[in-house]
Computed example of a mutant assay.
Amino acid sequence: MTRADIQALADFLPPLQQPGFTAGNVRGGEQTEPGVLQMPFIDYDPVVDAFVEAAYRQSWVLTDFDWQVWAQSDEAKALQGEEAAIATATPEQLGRLITVCVRQERFCEGALMSAFDSGLILRIVERAAVLAGDPSSDLG
């Protein structure tokens, strides 16, 4: 990852730190006519859509590893659940986490909202901001 790739993530820090930021809302579930219910769906905030677009554009969504297997690993669980672990995460580990979050959404709507609501995406972006501002990091 280059410094520009890291900075693309770090640029999401201000909007994610805004008081009251919510990743999205559940919509639907209402009866649209007798006997017909609209399926519930997630209406994501534009910041979330922009984050996903940037993740793909900057190649944070990785295609060269088995994300489903990695998501069950001790490393993935520690990075997702332990603030101290993500505070030392490498760019590669951040990419793996982002890949898991984005790809899970394709199989389970709302998974990405959970990653935002739990603070995981904010912690990833905070770590990216640290890496982007650290001239001693080994980024290109």
Rank of each mutant, 00 (worst) to 15 (best):
E33L: 04
T2Y: 05
F12M: 04
T63N: 13
P19Y: 07
G35C: 03
G81M: 14
I98T: 03
L79R: 08
T90Y: 05
P15N: 00
E82N: 12
E109I: 14
L9D: 03
A84C: 14
G95D: 02
P91V: 07
E33Q: 09
K77A: 13
C101M: 15
L120A: 00
G140R: 15
I121S: 01
A4L: 12
G140C: 09
A85C: 09
A78V: 15
I98N: 05
A129D: 00
A54H: 08
A84H: 15
R123M: 04
P46G: 03
A50V: 06
T88C: 14
Q72H: 15
A4D: 08
Y44W: 07
W67V: 02
P34W: 14
D45K: 11
S114R: 11
I86R: 00
A85I: 11
P40E: 00
I42V: 10
T32V: 08
L120N: 01
D66P: 12
I6H: 08
Q17C: 07
C101K: 06
Q38S: 06
D49G: 09
Q80R: 13
A129L: 04
L16F: 00
L62D: 13
Y56T: 13
F41N: 00
P40S: 00
L122Y: 02
D43W: 05
I86N: 01
A132L: 10
W70L: 07
F116S: 02
L112D: 08
E83L: 12
F116D: 02
P46T: 07
T2D: 06
L139K: 10
I6L: 10
V69G: 14
W67A: 01
L13W: 09
L13Y: 07
F107H: 12
R96H: 10
G95C: 00
C101F: 06
E126K: 08
P91C: 02
K77L: 13
D5W: 10
G24W: 05
D43F: 03
P19V: 01
G20D: 01
T2I: 11
S136T: 09
Q68A: 12
M113T: 10
R27T: 04
I124Y: 03
G140M: 14
R3W: 08
G28T: 00
L120F: 03
P34T: 06
D64W: 11
Q17P: 05
E109W: 09
M39Y: 05
L94G: 02
W70K: 06
E33W: 10
A10W: 01
V69Y: 13
W60K: 05
C108P: 12
S114Q: 15
D11P: 12
E82R: 15
R27E: 01
G29V: 00
E126Q: 15
Q72A: 09
E75K: 04
D43A: 00
L97P: 13
T99M: 02
L139C: 04
D49Q: 15
C101P: 00
I124T: 07
P15Q: 00
